[in-house]
């Protein structure tokens, strides 16, 4: 539980920092996706994916066996059962975990497999320079990157995310799920230290506080993207951030700074 949890805790932070690049402009987030998909060998991408999925599987397997053992250990409950000091998050790990699993499945179908019906994966713009509807040029310093004299194309992750979060219930689900992730981490982050024996009274107080902070940072870091989209601060950009759109990008940055 603790070791698989640690991998997920670290992944979540990395993933959040990666996602936040959307605020730096479409060309930045698209270039980041390009780096992950094209520059990294496919085998490395798949290795990371398999390790992550394997970690989630281990985490779930540990949670299920633990839950079954614990149910068996208390066949008859109490008529009156008072909670003295256990936190709400610590007592709802199973519930938050199950909903998070549903979220992860939806999330992978949404952004990785890109197979959620009704979601917009293709750019609406039919501008001539867009060769494949979903692709935009890879942009660096406002210019399309050329490779062998051709514009290097990449997937418009920016538009996919913005389009997805324009659907209110998708945004709501992401915000609720990351809120539950915040709760899950508020207990889990500190608990994993206890499970491997690296905690004492002093460090328990410190780690509990760190867990609370970590949970909130992760919540805000993830939830701010759907919120920004709903608030109209992040916009689709069918050119992928080419110079022609710089005025627009500047306008977004300006409104963000306000």
């Amino acid at each position: 539980m603790a070791l698989s949890g640690l991998v997920l805790v670290l992944f979540v932070m990395g993933h959040m920092l990666g996602n936040l690049q959307i605020f730096l402009g479409p060309e930045v987030i698209n270039a980041y996706a390009y780096k992950l998909h094209e520059l990294l060998p496919a085998s490395a991408l798949w290795a990371v994916r398999l390790v992550l999925l394997g970690t989630i599987a281990v985490h779930i397997w540990a949670a299920v066996t633990l839950t079954l053992d614990n149910r068996k250990a208390r066949p008859q409950g109490y008529l009156e059962d008072k909670v003295v000091q256990a936190s709400y998050s610590s007592r709802t790990m199973r519930m938050s975990g199950i909903i998070l699993l549903a979220f992860i499945i939806f999330h992978i179908a949404h952004f990785t497999v890109r197979a959620v019906p009704g979601m917009q994966y293709e750019s609406e713009s039919k501008e001539s320079r867009i060769l494949e509807k979903t692709e935009v040029p890879l942009v660096k310093d406002g210019e399309a990157v050329l490779k062998n004299g051709q514009e290097e194309m990449t997937f418009n992750v920016n538009d996919m995310m913005v389009a997805g979060f324009k659907v209110w219930w998708v945004s709501a689900f992401y915000i609720i799920a990351t809120g539950l992730l915040c709760m899950h981490l508020t207990h889990g982050f500190s608990s994993m230290f206890q499970s491997v024996g690296l905690r004492n009274g002093l460090w328990r107080r410190r780690l509990d506080r760190a867990a609370l902070a970590y949970g909130w940072v992760v919540f805000i870091g993830f939830a701010i993207i759907p919120i920004a989209v709903m608030a109209g601060l992040l916009k689709q950009d069918p050119t992928g951030g080419l110079v022609s759109q710089v005025g627009e990008t500047a306008a977004i940055t300006e409104s963000l700074e306000k």
Binding site: L66, N70, S90, H187, G201, R204
Partner: peptide
């Protein structure tokens, strides 16, 4: 016996204040 999930109810109930440490 069941497995520990670090919720801390034991420590609160213990008449001898045995700590989670």
């Amino acid at each position: 016996f069941g497995g520990c999930t670090n919720v801390g109810e034991c420590e609160a109930a213990c008449p001898k204040s045995i700590s989670l440490d």
